[in-house]
């Protein structure tokens, strides 16, 4: 961990700023540049910054769950988002359904799933390199 007062003090704000930005990027992704993949990477950057400043143990406490668990939730979410089409309309898995006239549909939970998997993968991969894991 890089021991710097400025870094330590700003870490929390940078983290939430990154997460907010990543969620924004995630949600706008369907119409503007962005999406779950990039969003997940941006969110991961925030957490990596936090880990550099305060150590990976602190970051894991903020995450509450293991990065892999977040990834697993994401995978389930993405797979689950395709089920309505299969069960309700007898269409192939992952044919996304949209509410008439509204920009809300099953593609959004799918993208959130992608986001979580990318975030979980990136953190599970990077965090072990950022210092002794005392968590």
């Amino acid at each position: 961990m890089l021991d710097s007062l400025i870094l330590r003090a700003s870490a929390r704000y940078v983290l939430w700023a990154c997460v907010a930005l990543s969620v924004f990027v995630l949600l706008r992704g369907h119409n503007e540049p962005g999406g779950g993949f990039i969003g997940g990477l941006i969110g991961a950057l925030g957490f990596v910054f936090h880990a550099l400043a305060r150590g990976p143990a602190a970051t894991r406490r903020v995450l509450r769950l293991d990065p892999l668990a977040w990834g697993g939730i994401g995978l389930l979410l993405a797979a689950g988002s395709g089920l309505p089409a299969l069960l309700l309309h007898a269409e192939p898995l992952l044919t996304h359904q949209w509410m008439e006239g509204l920009p809300i549909g099953t593609a959004i939970p799918f993208d959130i799933g992608v986001y979580l998997v990318v975030l979980g993968f990136a953190l599970a991969f990077v965090l072990p390199f950022l210092g002794e894991d005392a968590a």
Binding site: E32, G34, G35, L75, D111, V114
Partner: peptide, 24 residues
């Protein structure tokens, strides 16, 4: 697919099954 970002539409909709495999 109600999306103007074609890249993302491809990832999450047209080829969603591929994406599911990739993230798995």
């Amino acid at each position: 697919a109600r999306g103007r970002n074609v890249v993302n539409v491809i990832i999450v909709d047209f080829r969603a099954l591929d994406t599911l495999g990739e993230i798995a």
